[in-house]
Design a protein around this nucleic acid. Structure first.
Lengths: 258, 258
DNA sequence: CCTTGAAAGTGACGCTGCGTCATTTTGTAT
DNA sequence: ATACAAAATGACGCAGCGTCACTTTCAAGG
């Protein structure tokens, strides 16, 4: 017969908890001293291990009490349903994680305008819930699923997505300035490089995507992170400048070669 | 100005919850009718979206209240620590999942003797916690880490592990019978086949593993699922019979060829 | 203007699993 | 016998509402 503090030491369960288990009839002390001090036996230690194990598995004390007292308890279905519950919780946490990453990246894009980032995210998730039945299977998504999957994701943690996010964030900071400035042009060049690396010769796809981008409604319905119209215009402007500059470099090189 | 029920409808948040948020000062109604009925504006709807979003992210109401009221709130570290918390929770659930699978498979092996399966699992996890510093890096584990990783796992869900578990469970049911019986021999043959498929010519490894298996202490220290001595003996016996039967088949075939 | 039924209000208890006082008894060593 | 550790009981607290129970207010119809 061991007293309560010994049990606590051996099982790492607090004295308070042991008394509570006694109180709710989950694990009662088999005997007491004349003065009323609880005395436990090895039997209780084992039972306590059981209880502790199932509690760590996420069972509620009442459930554990039921399964210990009921010799007809259906282990098979009980364990499986608990496993299903655990898997469901994992999915829930996974989606929480993705939303948090999306928010963190969104704040980076918005250059520290947190409320705006939160607002856009909420807007997106509302959109997502609505189901958008007509455009859900957009031709582009259906036609090129593999390319679509390669698009940078706001909830991603891969280096590619992160750089896109960083580039976009920088553009937004420079929007008041000159689209021909070297800072802007360097960013645009980097974007063009990445686009080339990731989508290569799929120009058709990239063009269509850009068209969608320029329509806020379509972008939203397809779950693309919302970008303000002026930012898009600025980027297009800068891109035109970039292209013509590249052209003139080429013709200059051609001239040089002569 | 909208009534509380309208807000509830639009946001999917119950009236009770809205009143509670008002009570704790998280979201108070900006005005009331003469009679004291709450009236909300669009402003509150937005704020409610915020609150709802962060609650889904696992924040406590008090934390949300703090971050909404404090304009100096540190978004960056706040979001990152919450993300870390979410990741930690995912790890916790993952280990819960593995333990549950281990238990479910253990029950299959023990042929429905649930308390025994639970007991063995608890024993294993206790062992695991102790750290077992001397044998933790057993030579076999260190020498052949890739082979070690291919061993069937009690917490696995792959078909190979499941078949090993099933075979072991059947052996345990037949332990009272004759090791030379066809039922037992068929199981042993299947085990030999699988061993051949999975470990091929690594006889050295398999032999060492079997030696460890025959020592309960070593098995336990290496985290192998405990198998009773008599089961091991029975299996060895049956295996010997299987081998000699195979030998005699071969010599018979040789004889036939002459 | 009055009635009526729906909707809104307040207040209080319940749930989970203990942590944390506060106060009283019991056990044990000197 | 005394003193001090350890045990016991009892009660409140927490988080986030759900769920009565009871009262008051709102808006529409007669």
């Amino acid at each position: 017969m061991i007293h309560i503090k010994e049990v606590a030491k051996q099982t790492q369960i607090t004295v308070r908890t042991l008394r509570y288990y006694d109180q709710i009839g989950l694990l009662s002390a088999p005997s007491k001293t004349e003065g009323g001090h609880r005395l436990y036996s090895e039997e209780e230690l084992k039972k306590l291990q059981y209880i502790h194990f199932f509690k760590r598995m996420g069972y509620k004390l009442q459930e554990i009490k039921d399964m210990l007292s009921d010799p007809e308890w259906d282990w098979s279905s009980g364990l499986k349903s608990q496993l299903a519950f655990i898997l469901e919780e994992q999915r829930r946490l996974r989606s929480m994680e993705l939303s948090m990453r999306e928010l963190i990246n969104g704040i980076a894009v918005e250059g520290g305008n947190e409320p705006l980032a939160v607002q856009k995210l909420i807007q997106l998730s509302n959109q997502h819930k609505k189901g958008l039945p007509d455009l859900k299977e957009h031709q582009l998504k259906a036609k090129e699923p593999d390319l679509w999957a390669k698009l940078p994701k706001m909830n991603g943690e891969d280096p590619d997505s992160l750089e896109w996010i960083a580039l976009l964030g920088q553009i937004k900071r420079l929007i008041k300035g000159d689209p021909a400035s070297s800072k802007v042009q360097n960013i645009i060049r980097r974007m063009a490089e990445k686009q080339g690396e990731q989508f290569g010769d799929e120009e058709q796809f990239v063009n269509e995507l850009w068209e969608i981008r320029k329509s806020p409604k379509q972008s939203e319905q397809l779950g693309l992170y919302p970008i303000e119209q002026e930012v898009l215009d600025f980027m297009e402007q800068a891109f035109q400048i970039y292209l013509s500059a590249a052209d003139s470099r080429i013709s200059k090189e051609e001239t040089d070669e002569h």
